[in-house]
């Protein structure tokens, strides 16, 4: 019997110098785009939170503040025609995939012009035309669906790939196991990205999961697995890029764990009784956006002035999108039954 070991997606030895290399090999516009998306995610979620507090957003929301490097670093790798599927903490993925911020904010506000015409809300934003195949509000439920999306890509001999995002809370579901096994035996063009923000609602991943790090799970499915610093957008980029190349080349799925932290509570009802304020503060010191800005300046990729302009532009984009979204009409409750089934 061969010894079963965790195969990394990317040789860890190349990561540190690769990070520096990326700062020079990626076009300046691409780096600027990555920073802009990270800023837009942060400002979008802060704005959504404010609108919630003002009573303009109904229901709840699951903010990913602090996790921006994971979504942007992964999705930055993709071709425009590649696909994503994700879960309820998915605002970052949606923005990184190129969502129209107005349509997205309009959905939060429950408006007819929102992505889901006010039927889905913050937990279910999909932009089918933009390759965002939607957010699922049930932990892990998008993972089996991802198998089918990737299966369709394979059966059509497409060169597109799928990124499937989920959280640490999803890895203890039976569906996770069924889906990763199936994707592996069929060598499907999908990358499973587990954003380990360390808590499944209040349950700490370190005590709820028998095996650490979570990327070790990949061994059970004979696929490469790797844990990356989920607050380092360039490290996420490198490893996901290797996984995407593998998927596109027909070599099958990979499992990437982006180790990160959510600054906000699980949802709006969270009083943070399961973790300390000191822990939250400590992670705020590792802000992925501040870190990326610093790296960009130090490498001379972008000037401080350019960075300031990008940040300001992102903020302005959110403000404008919010204003426009607020002006959208409310949906009508008439004839809703007619929408349940496709003609």
């Amino acid at each position: 019997m061969e010894e079963i070991v965790l195969r990394p997606v990317l040789d860890p030895a190349v990561i540190s110098h690769g990070r520096q290399q990326l700062l020079h090999t990626l076009p300046k516009e691409r780096l600027a785009w990555m920073l802009q998306k990270m800023c837009e995610i942060r400002y979008f979620e802060e704005k959504a939170e404010e609108l919630y507090t003002r009573g303009l957003v109904h229901g709840t929301m699951h903010l990913s503040i602090g996790q921006e490097a994971s979504s942007v670093g992964s999705i930055a790798v993709l071709r425009p025609d590649d696909l994503i599927i994700h879960h309820h903490r998915g605002h970052g993925h949606t923005i990184a995939k190129g969502a129209d911020l107005k349509l997205m904010m309009a959905e939060f506000l429950g408006k007819e012009c929102g992505y889901c015409r006010g039927r889905g809300g913050s937990m279910h934003i999909a932009d089918i035309a933009g390759g965002n195949l939607g957010a699922t509000g049930v932990v892990g439920s998008g993972i089996p669906t991802a198998v089918g999306i990737a299966l369709a890509l394979q059966m059509r001999r497409s060169t597109q790939v799928l990124l499937a995002f989920f959280g640490d809370g999803a890895v203890n579901l039976g569906e996770f196991h069924e889906a990763l096994n199936m994707a592996a035996i069929w060598k499907l063009p999908v990358v499973f990205i587990c954003e380990n923000n360390q808590y499944g609602m209040s349950g700490p991943a370190r005590t709820m999961c028998a095996v650490q790090p979570l990327s070790v799970r990949a061994v059970a499915y004979n696929m490469p697995g790797q844990t990356v610093d989920g607050n380092d957008v360039l490290e996420v980029y490198q490893v996901v890029q290797a996984a995407v190349e593998r998927a596109r080349g027909g070599e099958g799925p990979s499992f990437v764990e982006t180790y990160t932290y959510r600054w906000r509570g699980h949802s709006k009802s969270d009083r943070n009784v399961y973790r300390t304020q000191a822990e939250i503060e400590e992670w705020k010191q590792r802000c992925p956006i501040a870190r990326f800005k610093q790296v960009l300046v130090e490498a001379g990729a972008l000037t401080a002035t350019e960075i300031e302009a990008i940040d300001a532009q992102a903020k302005a984009n959110i403000e404008r999108a919010t204003e426009e979204a607020l002006a959208c009409p409310e949906p009508s409750p008439e004839n809703l039954e007619a929408e349940v089934y496709a003609p």
């Binding site: 089996p144 991802a146 299966l151």
Partner: peptide, 18 residues
């Protein structure tokens, strides 16, 4: 397929979505 009814249903759902 393997004996994985949830993944079978997920695979069908995802493929249908495509």
């Amino acid at each position: 397929t393997p004996i994985s009814e949830a993944a079978i249903a997920g695979a069908a759902t995802g493929a249908a979505l495509m």
